[in-house]
């Protein structure tokens, strides 16, 4: 991580290293879809339409190539960058989580206001032994999703949150 700005410190815990693989897979899927879309658009442009000037339809093949060339570095960079940014911590009965890469998000959820704690696993997460913990309160802006946790860690965190939420529950909204 680059130097911390502002008064907030980094959350203590990193997510699992395998999350990098997860984000890589997701980035690749997105990349394939994007380039595939570009190929379709290029075919359409190169289809000999009257309104499309010749210089454009003649060089339509360059579109997917350009898209691919621009996006490829991000496929590699995004997972690593995310791994550096995504962190979480539970202390003082508050969940503090940071996520994002280009744009960032910090979420603070006090355990006393938690309504549900979900542990979810997608296909890829399952294959990698990862899990996502979704912490919900009465407000979308007070809810947090911690992705890319080791399954064991996620299970323990969810268990702990649920137990503490039961002890602390607080009816104010």
């Amino acid at each position: 991580m680059r130097g911390q700005r502002g008064p907030l410190r980094d959350p203590a815990e990193r997510v699992s290293r395998r999350a990098i693989v997860l984000w890589l897979i997701e980035a690749l899927v997105g990349f394939v879809l994007l380039v595939g879309g570009a190929v379709l658009v290029a075919n359409w442009i190169g289809g000999g339409w009257e309104i499309v000037p010749d210089w454009l339809s003649g060089n339509a093949w360059m579109l997917p190539v350009a898209v691919g060339a621009v996006m490829l570095p991000f496929v590699v960079v995004e997972p690593l960058w995310r791994y550096a940014v995504h962190r979480w911590e539970l202390s003082g009965d508050v969940v503090y989580a940071r996520s994002g890469w280009l744009s960032r998000e910090w979420v603070f959820v006090p355990v006393s206001r938690i309504q549900t704690v979900d542990k979810a696993q997608g296909w890829f997460e399952r294959a990698l032994g990862l899990a996502t913990v979704e912490i919900r309160t009465a407000s979308h802006a007070g809810s947090s999703t911690i992705k890319g946790l080791d399954y064991e860690v996620a299970a323990r965190l969810a268990e702990e949150l649920a137990r503490r939420a039961q002890e602390l529950r607080d009816d104010a909204t």
Binding site: S103, R104, V107, V109, G142, S144, A172, T173
Partner: peptide, 21 residues
């Protein structure tokens, strides 16, 4: 105050460059 159930802070790239959140 008692209605607050949590906080979300967001910073886009441009906000980061401007030091805003």
């Amino acid at each position: 105050r008692r209605a607050v159930v949590g906080w979300t802070m967001r910073q886009t790239v441009f906000q980061r460059m401007a030091g805003l959140i």
